[in-house]
Computed example of a mutant assay.
Amino acid sequence: MKNRGFTLIELLITIAIIGILAGVAYPSYMQYVLKSKRSEAQSALLDLANRQEMYYLDHHKYAVNLNTELGLSANPFITDNGYYSIATSSAKATEDFTLTATAISTQAADTDCATLSITHELAKSATNTTCWK
């Protein structure tokens, strides 16, 4: 009579292979998740830059306060999912602005692209040159 089943060695080899695959796949997956959440900051920065330009057309200066002048919920503004905090700065409100998104919460693990910025000239900058791609 022959037993049907797996030997202990076969089970250990299978578990080892699964462990190796998971060890390789998980870090890649986490980098993908961080990169996908980065799009929230990019779209929010572009939206706020457009709002700044509309504000400039009406008031002949850029907004210094995001909540009172642009009608957002707070200054600094926290994005919808809470992954980024966006603040504005300006040397002269009549001439320029820079919007900066800083990673917070779980997105703070994205050290490669911890901050993203956009200026009144739509010049995009970040911690790493590939962050806006």
Rank of each mutant, 00 (worst) to 15 (best):
V33R: 10
L45Q: 07
M54V: 07
A44D: 08
H59D: 09
L46F: 03
L57Q: 05
D47C: 12
E53A: 14
A63P: 14
K61V: 15
Y55E: 07
N50T: 07
L48S: 08
A63V: 12
H60Y: 04
Q42T: 03
D47P: 02
N50E: 04
R38M: 01
L46V: 12
Q42S: 04
Y55L: 05
A44M: 05
A44R: 08
R38H: 00
Q52V: 02
L34G: 05
D47W: 01
K35I: 09
H59F: 14
E53L: 09
S36F: 00
Y56N: 06
Q42L: 06
N50H: 02
L57P: 01
Y56H: 09
S43Y: 14
M54Q: 06
A44C: 05
A49R: 15
H59A: 14
L45S: 11
L45H: 01
L57D: 11
Y55T: 11
L57H: 04
Q42I: 03
A49T: 13
E53P: 02
K35H: 03
Y32S: 07
Y32A: 02
A44Y: 15
L48R: 08
Q52N: 07
K37M: 04
S39A: 02
Q42E: 11
D58K: 15
V64G: 05
M54T: 03
L45A: 07
Y32D: 06
K61I: 10
K37W: 05
A41Q: 08
L48C: 03
K37R: 15
Y62F: 14
K37P: 00
D58P: 06
E40K: 08
Y55G: 10
V33D: 03
L34W: 03
K37C: 00
L48Q: 12
A44N: 02
Q42C: 15
S36L: 03
Q31T: 06
K37N: 04
Y62Q: 00
A63L: 10
Y56M: 03
Q52A: 14
M54A: 12
E53C: 01
L46A: 05
S36A: 07
Y55F: 13
K37Y: 00
A49E: 06
M54H: 11
A44W: 00
A49H: 15
A41V: 12
R38Y: 06
L46M: 11
A41G: 04
A63N: 14
A44K: 11
V33G: 04
Y32R: 04
Y56V: 00
K61W: 07
H59L: 05
Y56D: 00
R38W: 02
S39H: 07
Q52F: 09
E40I: 08
L57M: 10
N50V: 05
A49D: 12
Q52S: 12
L34Y: 03
A63G: 15
Y32Q: 02
L46T: 09
E40Q: 01
K35Q: 09
A49L: 10
N50K: 13
H59Y: 09
E53D: 09
E40G: 01
K35P: 08
A49F: 13
S39W: 12
M54D: 03
D47G: 11
A63R: 11
Y62V: 03
H59V: 15
A44S: 15
Q52I: 08
S36Y: 00
Q31C: 04
Q52R: 13
V64T: 10
K35T: 07
Y32G: 02
A49G: 12
N50S: 09
Q31V: 10
L34I: 06
K35A: 14
A49Y: 07
V64A: 10
Y56A: 07
A63F: 13
D58G: 11
A63C: 14
E53Y: 02
